[in-house]
Simulated assay, not measured.
Amino acid sequence: MRNAVIVQTKRTPIGKKNGMFRNLSPYELAAPILRHLADGIEGNIDDVILGNVTGPGGNVARVSVLEAGLPLSVPGLTLDRQCSAGLEAIRLACHLIQGSAGKCYIAGGVESTSTSPFPARARFSPDKIGDPDMGVAAECVAQKFRISKDKQDEYALVSYQRSWEAFKSAYFAEEIIPIDQWKIDEEFIRERNIEALLKRAKPLFLKENGTVTAANSCGIHDGASAALVMEEETARQLGFKPILRFVDSQVLGVEPSLPGFAPVPTIQELLKRNNVSVEDIDLIEINEAFASKIIACAQELSIPFEKLNVSGGALTIGHPYGASGSILVTRLFYEVQRRKEAKYVLAAIGSGGGIGVAVLFEAVK
């Protein structure tokens, strides 16, 4: 079976809904990433796979390919697995390479919530099962796993501090392709007094015994991210240095009211099948949609916070739905290059409808 490796990853800055990217379509956000990753190897690209959740409909990936000026022969595939769509795109590209369907893919995701034509979210689950909004579902996770507001606020503070430390250390600058004049995530234009915000923020979704607030939840954002995924021997022949080698992946469903719990059984199954443990994983990225989700996953999987979301995440920079899973991989791509001792790394995300996606990589030495 062929090895799939990641040789490049990039993302745009992340903008707030109706913020700095308010007039940019998904295609205009994705195209600069595609052009950068395809530069010099345009004729080798088998396909572009992009996750997208709130877009205008149609084949967003194909339009993005054309907007980027890639060869007409590159078809483009758009998929929607809600918040895990960007990670699913990378997962799919890796499995296609393993199965000899192709040798070179650009895979990731894009979201323009600012230009979305939809006033409300899509349905996650039938009414007979229950279809809670994600915030209510985050409260369900907090209640089930007895996660207090104080615990959520404590994690949100740590995540915010880590994000700002990473920004000031120019870690995020390595990840980003500027869009027009924008070179940094919109959140970093002005530093907030997060401690005061956490104390002041009130529960949003449950009036009685509520714990989830605007300060310990992510916002709604715009952005794009993608990875250049190649068959390993082909990558080396073309002069690329593989950084992450795909090991395996897992997708599982859970109760739709507990999407934040979905990474737990998904990661457990993935690690069990590959005969590795959490102790063997050096870096873990789990999307920070809500602090309750991260704490639940850390508790149930016994993940030390020292190896989890080490440069912060969506609680600070934001959650552009379809792109977020790819951003996790982008973060791991650059982080393993700063941590030479890292061997195994893992990206995971839980999404609307109760779906977990997890992907295991090994660092290529």
Rank of each mutant, 00 (worst) to 15 (best):
I106S: 09
V5S: 05
L332G: 03
S125Q: 00
P256F: 14
V141Q: 01
A291Q: 08
I176W: 02
F172W: 07
N209G: 11
I243Y: 03
K128T: 07
V336Q: 01
V364L: 03
G353D: 04
S311N: 13
P320G: 09
R331S: 14
A156M: 10
T54E: 06
G130D: 13
T316F: 01
P32V: 07
A201I: 04
P56C: 00
R162V: 06
N274K: 03
Q161Y: 05
S100D: 08
P32W: 04
L72G: 13
R2A: 09
G354E: 10
M230I: 06
D133F: 02
L283H: 06
D222N: 04
D280S: 13
E279S: 15
S163C: 15
V158E: 14
I177E: 15
D280P: 12
F240R: 04
Q8P: 02
N216I: 07
T9I: 01
I33M: 14
Q250Y: 06
D39E: 14
E191Y: 01
T316K: 00
A170L: 12
A314M: 02
G322R: 06
L72H: 12
A235D: 11
A323D: 08
E186D: 07
P304A: 11
L238D: 03
E300I: 02
R192Q: 13
K343S: 02
V74T: 11
T316P: 08
R200I: 05
S159G: 03
E306Y: 05
V247L: 08
N18S: 13
T78S: 12
